[in-house]
């Protein structure tokens, strides 16, 4: 009986699925206006996403304090990205699910710092998953672009946007905004969710 209660049950699964969908929809809506300009997308859109989605993550982990929550969250996001055809980011999200679950072992779900840490890990995985393909699959993109009839110069200028250095910068900035997001999440918990009796 005791052992069964440690793992996520039916109620938690439904909650996690719905909040994951809400997060995905919000991510889509926010990133749409920025999609055309890579630098804005990398730094500004990701920053807004991380701050806005922080409360969702904090609420989810506080409402379902059982083993498997983080893994299911990462797994569902991975599934979504497999369906829309971005296999690489799906792999990083699965990794996030496993590592994040390890962070939460013990009494992690009651510990705000560990929840914040796993959210920061999530944001790092988000950046790595979306931008590392530009480095690993650079040849393919260059081939595509030259097939489109672009000059060599502009192709080089564009691929220079996605250097390991800029990606590292993006990871750092998204980690900072993710910690702000987690903080905002706890503020919202105190101010709105607890008085509203959601918990």
């Amino acid at each position: 009986m005791n052992k069964e209660k440690k793992w996520i049950g039916f109620k938690e699964i439904v909650l996690i699925a719905l909040l994951t969908v809400l997060g995905i929809v919000i991510q889509l809506v926010i990133s749409m206006p920025f999609a055309a300009v890579p630098h804005l997308m990398m730094f500004i859109a990701v920053a807004i996403i991380m701050v806005v989605c922080g409360p969702i993550y904090v609420l989810m982990l506080n409402k379902s304090r059982r083993l498997g929550t983080v893994f299911l969250f990462g797994g569902l996001q991975a599934l979504y990205y497999v369906i829309i055809g971005q296999a690489f980011i799906a792999v990083t999200y699965l990794l996030f699910g496993i590592i994040g679950e390890c962070i939460m072992l013990g009494d992690g779900y009651a510990n705000p710092k560990r929840i914040g840490l796993s959210y920061i890990l999530y944001s790092a995985c988000y950046i790595l998953g979306s931008y590392l393909p530009y480095i690993f699959l650079a040849d393919q993109y260059i081939e595509n672009m030259s097939a489109m009839g672009m000059s060599e110069q502009s192709i080089n200028a564009m691929m220079n946007l996605y250097t390991p250095f800029t990606i590292l910068l993006a990871v750092i900035s998204s980690c900072i905004f993710a910690s702000i997001g987690a903080y905002v999440g706890y503020r919202m918990m105190k101010k709105h969710f607890n008085p509203a009796g959601v918990m």
């Binding site: 109620k11 719905l18 909040l19 809400l22 919000i26 709105h192 959601v198």
Partner: peptide, 13 residues
Amino acid sequence: LVPLLIRTTKIAD
């Protein structure tokens, strides 16, 4: 966003 989140948790319940 906060009402949307609260509604979502209620719907889940």
